[in-house]
Design a protein around this nucleic acid. Structure first.
Length: 573
RNA sequence: CGGGGCGUAGCGCAGCCUGGUAGCGUACUUGUCUGGGGGACAAGGGGUCGCAGGUUCAAAUCCUGCCGUUCCGACCA
């Protein structure tokens, strides 16, 4: 490709709302162009990247035995009512009407459509297992689109759905997909991790997320360095403390904390470790339309895990209490609340760690006071519920007992689920088994955020000059910067010839024939993240040399003209 | 939906308080000089100042309403 025949539009400044490096660089390099909130055009340069990712995903899906199809993006409401998700998905779904005022949505996912296909097309156990996939535009009306294509409303997704006669078959395909996903991310050249995950709104049993590791990632991950345990922080279990609760040593007493409302400040004032403090989080839990005031106890330095809490029996519907509710139930302003001496109207639940603490510090339910030397069973009743309700922290024992946990952040780019029969049952997707009996199909589903991968990859690969693409997804694998293309006949003929020969050799090469100044060509090539750069000018040519450098190298090397194509062909592989 | 910010040229911004010819940087066009890390000089083109209403002789500027957008708290590939 010749730069003079292509179109790019690089910018020195990115729009204000771009806050993530990947977003800024994608806009500056001219990969994408914003149309509206969460809506992006993929410009020719960006589309080349997207297509390369797609190609790898498609190839690995095919290798794993999945069959590509393409379903409508627009889906009728009736299908979604069968599974009850028309209501469940709620405002995240873009709902539209046709001229007859019939209701549709722009598909945020395709379980209903594929299950409808399966129930109509699959009759016999002999046809199973089957795995269908598509690569298609999805729309989810995100509450807060941001980070460019990393959290856009319209995005490109590969979604696959498998159908099985039994769970064993599902597990087998699930493993195949797990491996295929690992292959995809390895081929893309990304640092990633597969973690155990919460199944969220899609539902089902077994589930793994695939995360590209990046400090700016929206998900917290916990992993064990000495075993293969890895899980989303939402799910990672904080195991029961090994040490049983120590016997009480101190007497309970008031301590003056005139301004100290946070555990951290109380600990500082008393000159003790924050791990000796307990905080009480006031919640309103609704069961059968009845609101119950609850204090959830956590160690001062721990954080509540709302996903875990919501999974406890009776806690599905909870929210944080507001100040008036706290005052009404405890007769005390927030900042000094605690579990000691509360009335029967207050339920107290404790995190496992707290349940094993003794002689701790907590709020006194009296303004400007905390209590020290507090002990369960003596100063207050044992908590009614003890459960794992906190986020794991660095250094926690790994749930598999084979080491300690470390934390990192990641961008979720893939998610695989064992759906089991959630959709097939609701939509009556059945087949006839060997005995002529009707059986409900087992299902799995497997997603990859194709467009998100581009953002995640840039998040992982960039420097002060711009994007550093992995070779697998760069828009061009090589650029020839022809210095003085418009002035020097020698440069022109040499670079033209090299360009044609590289193309013939199968190298995805860009010839910068615009006659731009060297600085401009270098800056733009770096910004776009092209992995290999060949610089050809008259001065070097007269000595029989050209210059070569990879995107991430700091120094260029001089190469002889002889055998140049062979060399470049080899490095570009 | 709750709360804050911002809407002026493709992008980044000033002007608004104190009403009176719409500006700067960048990008774009043309020319000259340049030519190894977004070069210099000169001359240009490009704006219903988000929309609607109001106050006024006069509104980008003051007032009201609406819309869009963005950031901070409940979603997910």
């Amino acid at each position: 490709m010749r730069a003079s025949q292509f179109f790019f539009n690089t910018q020195k400044e990115a729009p204000n709302e771009a806050e993530l490096q990947s977003h800024i660089l994608m806009v500056r390099a001219g990969l994408i162009k914003r149309l509206g909130s969460g809506l992006y055009s993929w410009m020719p340069l960006g589309l080349r990247v997207l297509r390369k990712v797609e190609a790898i995903v498609r190839d690995e899906m095919n290798k794993a035995g999945a069959l590509e199809l393409l379903m409508p993006a627009v889906q009728p409401k009736e299908l979604w009512e069968e599974t009850g998700r028309w209501a469940v998905f709620g405002p995240q779904m873009l709902k539209i009407q046709d001229r007859h005022e019939r209701e549709f949505c722009f598909g945020p996912t395709h379980e209903e459509v594929i299950t409808d296909i399966a129930r109509k097309e699959i009759r016999s156990y002999k046809q199973l297992p089957l795995n269908f996939y598509q690569i298609q535009t999805k729309f989810r009306d995100e509450i807060r689109p941001r980070f460019g294509v990393m959290r856009a409303r319209e995005f490109m997704m590969k979604d696959a759905y498998s159908f099985h006669t039994d769970f064993a078959s599902l597990e087998q395909t699930y493993q195949t997909m797990y491996q295929a996903y690992s292959n995809v991310f390895n081929r893309l050249g990304l640092k990633f991790r597969a973690v155990k995950a919460d199944t969220g709104a899609i539902g089902g049993d077994g589930s793994h997320e695939f995360h590209v590791l990046a400090d700016s990632g929206e998900d917290g991950l916990a992993y064990c360095d000495t075993s293969d345990f890895a899980a989303n922080v939402e799910l990672a279990e904080a195991v029961m403390p090994i040490q049983p609760r120590a016997a009480a040593q101190e007497q309970m007493c008031n301590v003056d904390t005139p301004k100290q409302t946070a555990c951290e400040d109380v600990a500082k004032l008393l000159n003790i470790g924050i791990e000796r403090t307990v905080k009480a989080i006031a919640l309103i839990v609704t069961v059968d339309n009845k609101a119950q005031f609850v204090l959830a106890l956590l160690r001062g330095d721990h954080h509540l895990n709302e996903v875990k809490l919501a999974k406890l029996a009776g806690f599905a519907d909870f929210r944080f209490a507001i100040e008036e509710e706290i005052r009404a139930n405890l007769n005390c302003p927030p900042g000094f609340i605690g579990p000691v001496g509360v009335g029967a109207n207050v339920q107290v639940i404790a995190d496992r760690t707290v349940a094993a603490m003794s002689d701790f510090i907590c709020g006194a339910n009296k303004p400007k006071y905390h209590l020290a030397g507090v002990n369960f069973g003596r100063d207050l009743p044992e908590p009614s519920v003890v459960a794992d309700i906190r986020n794991v922290v660095e250094g926690d024992i790994s749930p598999d007992g084979k080491g300690v946990l470390s934390l990192c952040r990641g961008v979720e780019v893939g998610h695989i689920f064992q759906l089991r029969t959630k959709y097939s049952e609701a939509m009556n997707a059945t087949y006839l088994d060997e005995n002529g009996q009707s059986q409900v199909m087992e299902m799995g589903c497997y997603g990859i955020g194709v467009s998100r991968i581009v953002g995640a990859a840039i998040e992982q690969g960039n420097d002060e000059h711009g994007i550093i693409f992995p070779a697998s997804m760069a828009p061009f694998s090589m650029v020839i910067c022809a210095i003085g293309y418009d002035k020097s006949e020698l440069v022109k003929t040499t670079t033209n010839k090299l360009h044609d020969e590289l193309l013939t050799a199968g190298v995805d090469v860009l010839l910068d024939d615009r006659g731009e100044r060297p600085g401009v060509m270098f800056a733009e090539a770096d910004l776009m993240g092209i992995p290999h750069r060949v610089v050809i000018g008259e001065r070097g040519l007269n000595e029989g040399n050209v210059e070569y450098k990879t995107r991430s190298a700091t120094e260029a090397q001089s190469l002889p003209l002889v055998n140049l194509v062979e060399f470049l062909q080899r490095v570009a592989k």
